[in-house]
Design a protein around this nucleic acid. Sequence first.
DNA 1: ACGTGTCATGTTATAATATCACGTTCGGAC
DNA 2: GTCCGAACGTGATATTATAACATGACACGT
Lengths: 200, 200
Amino acid sequence: MDHDFCRAHCTARMTPTEFSPATRAQLDRADALCTEQGARLTQQRREILGLILDAKTPVGAYDLLEKIKTPDRRPAPPTVYRALDFLLEHGLIHRIERLSAFVPCTHLLHDAHAHNPDHCHNHDHETCLHTAQFLICKSCKSVTEIAESSVLTTLRSICREQKFAMQSASIEVIGLCATCAAKERPASNAPRKQATSSPS
Amino acid sequence: MDHDFCRAHCTARMTPTEFSPATRAQLDRADALCTEQGARLTQQRREILGLILDAKTPVGAYDLLEKIKTPDRRPAPPTVYRALDFLLEHGLIHRIERLSAFVPCTHLLHDAHAHNPDHCHNHDHETCLHTAQFLICKSCKSVTEIAESSVLTTLRSICREQKFAMQSASIEVIGLCATCAAKERPASNAPRKQATSSPS
DNA sequence: ACGTGTCATGTTATAATATCACGTTCGGAC
DNA sequence: GTCCGAACGTGATATTATAACATGACACGT
Ligand SMILES: [Zn+2]
Ligand SMILES: [Zn+2]
Ligand SMILES: [Zn+2]
Ligand SMILES: [Zn+2]
C-alpha cells in the first residue's frame, strides 16, 4: 500500500548520486533481473551498483565506501561488503581477484538480456554466472570481460579428465590493451630513443 | 675462511625446522636454479621455501611468519613478504589469488628440471613462469597445478584477436577434487539420508 | 492493534593481508 | 681493509575484509 509511496519517497530523498539516463537504464535492467530471481535491488544496492557501472575502471570496496558518504550518513565497511556480496551472488558484478576490486558484469552493459531472457537459459547458468574471463590492462587499468566460452570449454574438459568437479573459475590475464601497447612501442622495433619512457 | 664455519654454525643454531631428505633435495634443486640465474637462495629464503614445500595445502604469509618464529627471533611481516617476492620472481612458488596463499611450483616437485635443464627453454619462459593454472578443492584445500598448456594456448589466441599483449595470467578453478567429490555424494543419487552432512 | 519472523541495515570493533621507511648487517669485488 | 649493493631487522602504517550484536522496516497471522 504505502510501500510504493515509501520507495518513491526514499528514492527522492536519499539518492546522493544522480546517475545518467544510460546508467539508470542499466540499473532498471538489473532491478528486473533481481525481481525475476525473487530478490530486491534495494536503494543501497542500487547505488553501489550504479557507482560500479559508472566507473571506467574496477572499483575497490573502500572507494565505494568513500563515495557513498554524505554529511548525514557515514556508512561502515560491512554496508558496502554486504551490497557487494548481494551483487556478486546475483551475477550483476564480478570481483577481480588480482585487484581486489569490482566491475559490472557485461551482461548488464549490453541489452541482450533485456530482449531475450531465454538467453539466460541456454548456457550453464550455474557455472557461467560465477565464472568470467578478464583482460586487465596494467597501464590504463581497463578491464575487458571476454564473453568467449572457448576457455571455459577447455577448462571443463581438463577438469573432466581429472575428475575435478568445477564450481567456478577465475581467469585473469594481465598485460597491455591494444591502445596502451601502441603507446608503449611507438615504432615496431625502434627501442633507440629515450628508453621508451615505460610507465612501470 | 671462517665463513664456512659460520654457515654451519648458523645452520645448526637457527634452523628451527629440520626438513626431510626429500624436501632438502628439492631445496637443493631450487638453489641450483637460483645460482643459474645469478640469484642467491639464502638461508631465510630457503626456510620459507621449505615450509611451503612441506605444506600439503597453500600457506598464507602470516602462517609462515608464525612458523619461522623462535624464542630468539621474532621476524616481522616484511621478512616473509620479501622472501615470497624473491621466490615468486624466480618461479619457485605461485600465489593463489583466491586464497591469498602460496604453493610451490610443480617444476620443483618433479625432477624434470634436474635432469634436463633444456626443458626450460622449449616453452615460453617469459609467460610460463608467471602463469599457471590451478584446481583448488574447496573441501580439502588441496591445490593441483595443471601443466597442460591448452588453456594458455586458447587464451593466447583470444588475446591475439583482441590485440591484447598478455604478460601473465591467473587461472584458478574452484570446486571439489575427485576424492572430496566422492565423499560428498556417497551414492550417485541418494540424497535422502540426513542432508548428506555437506560441509558447507 | 499486537506479537513475531525475516530481511536489510546500522554500528563498533577487530581480523587478516600487505607495504613503507629507515637503519643495520652481510657478502663479495676491488 | 674499503666500499657497495643486496639482504635483513624493526616499527609503524596502509589496505582489505569480517565478526558480533543491535536496530529498523515490513509481512503475516491472530
Ligand atoms: Zn559477466
Ligand atoms: Zn590500457
Ligand atoms: Zn609452476
Ligand atoms: Zn578435496
